[in-house]
Amino acid sequence: MAESMIRVRKLTKRYQRGGETLTVLDKLDLEMEEGRFYALMGPSGSGKTTLLNLVGGLDTADDGELIVAGENIAELSADELAHWRAANVGFVFQGFNLIGVLTARENVELPLKLTPLSSSQRRQQAETALKLVGLGDRMDHRPRQLSGGQEQRVAIARAIATDPKVILADEPTGDLDRKSAEQVLDLLVRLNREFKKTILMVTHDPAAAERAQSIVHLDKGQLGRIEHNQPVGAAR
């Protein structure tokens, strides 16, 4: 049995909407192994993105324990959480979330500015990440000069530039055509298999989910079934 990368215990998240309290995650228990590729599925409002945001330290839980990469992130202050995110998590969003005024290389270099690397080292590392995602010839292009698939690959390069332990992807193929979606999924699978990244991907697409090693189903803020496309530990 591999070590746990994400451990969730009685995790609760509520939102206030129009004077009503909406419980999005209800005492959720979940454990995810290091180096495994998970797909998170469920109907709209089931709490998938909320869980992803909590695991990535973008939002804070109301109750429960949340240990990611060995850190109980529920106990961290806002600044500590920011530093923790920079060191441990890479994000890939549905809408790519690249900064429009920067080039592909500058976007990938951004998280590296939070590391002690020198300017030339940062540049080199960003170029390596862009070459890895097949965009070595698009480094000086701005996001609007790239296709959707290319933008998402820049986002993946940015997510892996700091060599994080966990990659969190929120509908990474949601805005892409089939061919681009396949390229992005191929990349995520490669990052998992070759670089042993723990990946948690929210998706509505069963075909995309099939590329993961495990599919976790959420329903009304609670854990449903867990399917294993490959036996636990098979990819290791």
Binding site: A78, D79, A82, G100, P111
Partner: peptide
Amino acid sequence: THDVGILKALGFTNS
């Protein structure tokens, strides 16, 4: 505001 969200997600602090 959106760019600020991106920066924070990447690990940049509120400051």
